[in-house]
Structures are given as C-alpha cells and as structure tokens.
Amino acid sequence: MTAIAAPARPGLTRLITDTAVITRRNLRHTLRIPGVLPLSAVMPVIFILMFTYVFGGAVTASLPPGAEDAYVNWLIPGLIAQFALFSGANTAAGMADDLQKGSVDRFRSLPMARLAVPAGRTVADLTRALFTVLVMLGVGALIGFRWQTDLLHVLAAIGLVLAFAFSVAWMMVTVGLLIRSAEAVQAAVYMLVFPLGFTSAVFVPVETMPGWLQTFAAHQPVTVVAGAMRGLMLGPDALPAGHTVTGDILWTLAWSAALVAVFAPLATRAYERA
C-alpha cells in the first residue's frame, strides 16, 4: 500500500498554510485573467465622475459645514465605503465560478483545512479592494479631492474600509456558494448591494430623506463606514450633527465583526455542502 501523503500537522498551522496557498492562487487569477483589474477600476471611476459633475451642483448646499465647499471631498470617502460593498460582487462571482468549473470538488476531495477555500477568497479579494481604493483616491485627487487631515488618518481610513470589505467578502462568498451560477450571482448581489448603497449617506445627506427612511439610513453599514471615512479624511466637521468620528469607527467595527461572525460559519457550511 502506498504511504499516505499528508503528514499530521497541527490544525492552525495547516489552516494558515492552506489559506496562503489558496490566496496565492486567487491572486494569480486576479492578476492574470484579462479584464479583472481594469474592470474593478472602471465602475468606481464612472461613479466618481458621474456624481461629481452631474449631482455635485445640486447637493452641495445641503452638505455639513466641513464639506460644503467641495462635493468631491464629500463624495470620495463615501464612494470608497460604497465600493467596499460593491466589489463583493466579484467575490461572489469568483466563488460561483470555482463551483461551476469543478475546482471546489477538487478542493473538497483534498485533505486540506475546510475553511481555507472561503478564507483564501476573502483574503485575496482584500488586495483587489485595496487596488480599488487607491484608484479612487488617485482619480479623486485629479479632479480636486484633497484630504483635510493627515496621512496617518488617511491610512487608518484605508485600513478600516479594508476590514469592512473583508467582512462583506464573507457574506459574498456565502452568496456565491448558495447561488452557484456565476451569471445569477451578479444579479443577486446587485439586488443586495444597490439598495444598501443608495439608501446611505454616500451621495446625499441622510437628513434630505423622508423620516421613515432616515432611521434606517443613518445606522446601516454603508452610512457608518462612509461617516468613518469622512471623519478620518476630512475631520469631524464633515459629519452631520449627532455623529462623531469615534462613534462611526466603532459602528464600522461592530458591523464588520457581526458580518464575519454570521457569515464565516455560514460560508464554511455552504462550502461543505457545495
């Protein structure tokens, strides 16, 4: 009888190694599949240009004092928050694609850590999220975005939005594994992220919405992440009355932790049953 290949290794080491192997594979996909990187830059750029030049003039008057002279200053941090959510569509589609092509069957027949395939997907997609954030900051800078704080705060903002993107990715992995078809996944994800993205404070202040919507809009994840981004990049004056920078940061962390706590086990279970 041939010797069994896998030596016993302690669980956590094994999980880390396997996750690293899968992450590397997914990063290679991101870099090598034509169109993946350019496309994850195109939509954010279109949003930046469209909202700055089409809605900018109309909205500026209702902005908080710290942001009223430049809609672009108010928009960029908000859009960064929104695309942390939107870019999850790629995560879900990638996971569904792995299912359709049979990769998941192969992985599930290997003596590897169960969590490594979903985890490798979420970790690799952090890199793409970072790429998108940097593109948005760059394009924003070209059309007049200037942060009002210092580099350290901006770096903190980037770190925070990546933590949020990571938690969203767990939700998207679950969606991808449950819906299974790459085409249907895109539609399902947009049904999920468009309402969340647009009932937030990303484009217009929550105070301009009807009362019944305000309560929801003020506390939903995209709004608090956008608030935290604005607080960190523009200073406390950019937040509407009643919001503090620390408060929005804590809300962001709480939402992120909650999403991971709910979706990491769901994703793992969906993977095991895929």
């Binding site: 669980g11 999980l15 003596p111 590897m112 969590l115 793992t268």
Partner: peptide, 8 residues
Amino acid sequence: YSEMYLIK
C-alpha cells in the same frame, strides 16, 4: 471556526 471545522 478553525477549531470547529478543522480536519483531524
């Protein structure tokens, strides 16, 4: 989670 799901 890894403790919960790890292969032994």
